[in-house]
C-alpha cells in the first residue's frame, strides 16, 4: 500500500515537465509498471476483506440499556427507527413505599433499507443501548426483510468490538470514578 502511494507521488511530480510525447510515454510507463506489480484486489466472497474494527456495518441493540426514551428515533434523519413501549407499574418494595413506574420496550426496529448509516442514533443514545458492529453480510432478497426487529438487532451485540482503550494520560472513566466515591450514608438503600 505504501509502495503504491509512493509511486503516485512520483508520477504527480513527473507531470510537471514535458510536451506531448513525454506525457504519452509516461502514461505507457505508468500502466506497464502497474501491470508488473501485484494487485490490491481482495477476492471478497472467497477471502474476507480487512475492515477497520470500528467500521459501521450494522447497528446492534443492547435491549437492557434501552429506556424507550425515543431520542434515537427522533434524531434519525430518515425516521427508520420504530419504537413502541408501555408503562409498567412496579409495586412498592417497602411497606408504605411509593409505587414506581418504568418504561417497558415492546418493539424496537431499525429499517436498514432506509438507514443511511449516519450513526446519529448511536451517538445520541445516552444509555449506550446502540452500538456499531462491523458485520455487513445481511443482504436480503426481499427488501422487507431488512427491517430488523429487536431480537435480530440484539443478535448483533456479540459482534460489537470492545471500546478502544483510553489514552494513558486521560481521566478515569466515569463509571470507575462513580464506583470509587464514598458510599452515601443513607440507611438501608433499596437493594
Amino acid at each position: 500500500m505504501t509502495d503504491h502511494e509512493h509511486s503516485q507521488g512520483e508520477s504527480r511530480k513527473g507531470t510537471k515537465s514535458g510536451g506531448l510525447l513525454p506525457g504519452l510515454v509516461k502514461g505507457l510507463i505508468t500502466t506497464a509498471r502497474t501491470l508488473g506489480r501485484p494487485t490490491h484486489t481482495t477476492e471478497y466472497p472467497d477471502a474476507q476483506p480487512y475492515l477497520p474494527p470500528r467500521s459501521q456495518g450494522v447497528i446492534a441493540l443492547l435491549e437492557e440499556n434501552c429506556t424507550s426514551c425515543m431520542l434515537c428515533s427522533r434524531e434519525c434523519p430518515d425516521w427508520c427507527i420504530y419504537i413502541d413501549s408501555h408503562k409498567e407499574t412496579l409495586p412498592a418494595t417497602t411497606e408504605g413505599g411509593r409505587e414506581r413506574q418504568r418504561n417497558v420496550l415492546d418493539r424496537f426496529a431499525i429499517d436498514f433499507s432506509l438507514c443511511m448509516y449516519c450513526g446519529i442514533c448511536v451517538d445520541v443514545c445516552p444509555f449506550d443501548a446502540l452500538h456499531w458492529s462491523p458485520e455487513f453480510e445481511y443482504a436480503e432478497v426481499d427488501i422487507k426483510d431488512l427491517l430488523h426487529e429487536k431480537e435480530r438487532l440484539g443478535q448483533w451485540m456479540p459482534t460489537v468490538p470492545p471500546p478502544p482503550a483510553l489514552d494513558p494520560s486521560s481521566a478515569e472513566p466515569q463509571e470507575i470514578t462513580a464506583a470509587n466515591k464514598p458510599a452515601r450514608t443513607a440507611p438501608e438503600a433499596r437493594s
Binding site: T31, A32, T34, L35, T39, H40, T41, E43
Partner: peptide, 13 residues
C-alpha cells in the same frame, strides 16, 4: 486480463 492488471485489478477470475 492485461487491462485489469494495468489498472491494479485481477479481471475475470
Amino acid at each position: 486480463k492485461v487491462m485489469a492488471h494495468m489498472q491494479g485489478r485481477l479481471g475475470p477470475m
